[in-house]
Design a protein around this nucleic acid. Structure first.
Length: 528
RNA sequence: GGCCCGUUCGUCUAAGGGUUAGGACACCACCCUUUCACGGUGGUGAUACGAGUUCGAAUCUCGUACGGGCUACCA
């Protein structure tokens, strides 16, 4: 018997599915990251990008970056460029964006301004939204007037709206007049008085809300710009977004978005939602404003606030590898069910699945973050350019690149953050500026001084210059002089590197070379 | 205050009714190493509480407590 073709199977299976599942199968996966250009890009933002990206790649879909710049007051110069720089550093390239182009542009909401009003007006004519003419002062008055102990933050909702100045309370011709006169107004959604709105979150399952408890959110602002609520729904529709992922802080406004989808485009067209758990700092939600006050970075890369010139350090500059940064972020709220913790980007794409994303918030652990970075440093084969840059910045010139590669292999396991390499490799290229004499002094004596002088004589004539030979000579001489070799190794180390650190001391001497080794020992013996 | 989400070692997490509740980071001890690391071995350490369902609950249900988020013409 012939096997049924894929299409036949597909057709017969799909008939048994409901229409929304059918659509889900049919439509291409398209996800978006929608940041607002208001400052640095923090941990949580990058993880949201990552999960979006992984999901898109995993399902052969598109990853879109849409700039949500509908608030002109909060616009910060350079923030948009910065976001793309961060993504580039992480190795995440969008398929469509302001910088990458695409068929669904413009990808900046401010440039789509004209399209939103039409949808808001449509809602008004459908009776699902209304014009509101209340001024900021009137709103403030309302909040003051209705504020009680049991209701500290009164909402513009179905209890209040009939007492405000809007197209629900005003006569039609009054509204007409106000509109004609160009009176500043907003368009608000008219939340139903008693409906239950629910949806299935890919991470949390069914979530439901009573519409009577949700306020009449502004959809279109007085300046003609949409609020997030309108823009996200309209643009997700226009850009054919199949799955909408965002942080948990958006969950409370989900009913507004669901209703908007229902009114404007139909629930069957609505993307699947997932709300990611928050990444918490030591005291709660990580905030952009808290910058590096936690003792660890929160931004992906250095961010300088153009308003006050204030610099906030980023993970990149702190010395994190992008591979490690992505890895640690991926594991903050997700795991593949095995005990594996180190994943490359490619592995993450392969293993990622939304139903293994945790629903509970995760407190960021900087110690573990450093462990991830250490693991990636140990695995990395391409550290040299980064380390060389760091050394240059410290005023140390790298004259031999093969030598640097060899040194890197030797010291990798001692470095958690990239700047650690400066201490661990610097002395190979430049004699130590400071010598930790105190580490040697207590057990130092004339006998030992003579040992080193004699050792220098011995090795200066050595034909074979390698760690093994050097160690052999060293130990032999020590035995002859009846001094414990161990007591001599620490001083030797301090002479060569300046302190109690670094790889095995004879290997250091090997790399340093004869001339330099003898030079450092001699100058040391003159100091003590 | 209201609404929503959440709750397994200090932290990130595994365990989709039956496990001595597993791993990782951190911490401690020992081994390796006469620096510091890496590595190895071992250890301390958790199902918030109370009911219910069940022969059996970390796991399902309800309540309580606690934590977090939201409550703008910000996103």
């Amino acid at each position: 018997m012939r096997k049924p073709s894929f299409l036949q199977v597909f057709y017969s299976t799909s008939k048994q599915l409901n229409s929304s599942t059918y659509l889900c199968i049919m439509s291409k996966v398209r996800v978006r990251f929608a940041p607002s250009p208001t400052g640095g890009l923090h941990l949580g933002g990058v993880r949201t990008v990552l999960y979006n990206y992984l999901f898109a790649r995993k399902h052969g879909g598109d990853f879109i970056v849409r700039i949500e710049d509908t608030d002109q007051n909060r616009y910060v110069d350079g923030a948009e460029e910065y976001i793309f720089d961060c993504l580039r550093w992480c190795g995440i390239e969008p398929d469509e964006s302001v910088q990458h182009g695409g068929e669904y542009g413009p990808y900046r909401q401010s440039e789509r301004k004209d399209s939103y009003r039409e949808y808001a007006e449509r809602l008004v004519s459908q009776g699902q939204a209304y014009y509101a003419f209340d001024t900021t002062e009137e709103l403030e008055q309302m909040r003051q007037k209705h504020k009680t102990d049991s209701n500290p933050s009164p909402q513009y909702d179905h209890h209040i709206r009939m007492r405000m100045r809007n197209s629900l309370t005003l006569l039609p011709n009054e509204v007409e007049e106000l509109l004609k006169a160009g009176t500043r107004h907003v368009i608000r959604i008219k939340m139903p008085e008693s409906e239950t709105v629910s949806f299935t979150d890919m991470i949390r399952g069914e979530v439901s809300f009573e519409t009577s408890l949700v306020d009449d959110k502004v959809l279109l602002k007085a300046d003609g710009m949409p609020t997030y609520h309108l823009a996200v729904v309209v643009d997700d529709h226009l850009m054919k977004i199949s799955h909408a992922f965002r942080g948990e802080e958006w969950l409370p406004s989900a009913p507004v978005h669901i209703l908007l989808w229902k009114y404007l485009f139909g629930l069957d067209k609505m993307p699947k939602w997932a709300h990611f758990p928050l990444i918490l700092g030591p005291t709660g939600k990580l905030s952009k404003r808290d910058g590096a006050k936690y003792g660890f970075p929160v931004f992906a890369m250095n961010w300088t606030d153009p308003k006050n010139g204030e610099l906030t350090e980023g993970f990149r500059e702190k010395g994190f590898l992008p591979e490690a940064f992505l890895n640690l972020l991926a594991l903050l709220g997700w795991n593949d069910g095995t005990e594996q913790e180190i994943f490359s980007k490619e592995e993450l794409v392969e293993r990622f699945s939304m139903d293994r994303v945790h629903s509970a918030g995760a407190k960021f652990d900087y110690e573990k973050a450093k462990w991830f970075n250490h693991e990636w440093i140990k695995r990395s084969e391409s550290l040299a350019p980064k380390v060389e840059q760091l050394l240059n910045d410290a005023g140390i010139i790298v004259n031999d690149h093969i030598k640097l590669e060899n040194i890197l292999e030797l010291v990798k396991e001692r470095c958690h953050l990239l700047p650690d390499f400066v201490q661990q490799t610097g002395f190979f290229f430049q004699a130590p500026q400071t010598i930790d004499l105190d580490a040697v002094r207590p057990k130092w004596n004339e006998e030992k001084k003579i040992f080193f002088l004699d050792y220098c004589d011995l090795i200066s004539g050595a034909v074979e210059w390698n760690a093994t030979a050097l160690e052999e000579t060293f130990k032999k001489l020590a035995t002859e002089k009846n001094i414990k070799a161990g007591e001599l190794q620490l001083p030797f180390r301090v002479m060569l590197v300046g302190g109690k650190f670094g790889p095995p001391v004879f290997q250091i001497a090997e790399i340093l070379g004869k001339e330099e080794t003898i030079k450092r020992v001699s100058s040391f013996t003159e100091l003590l």
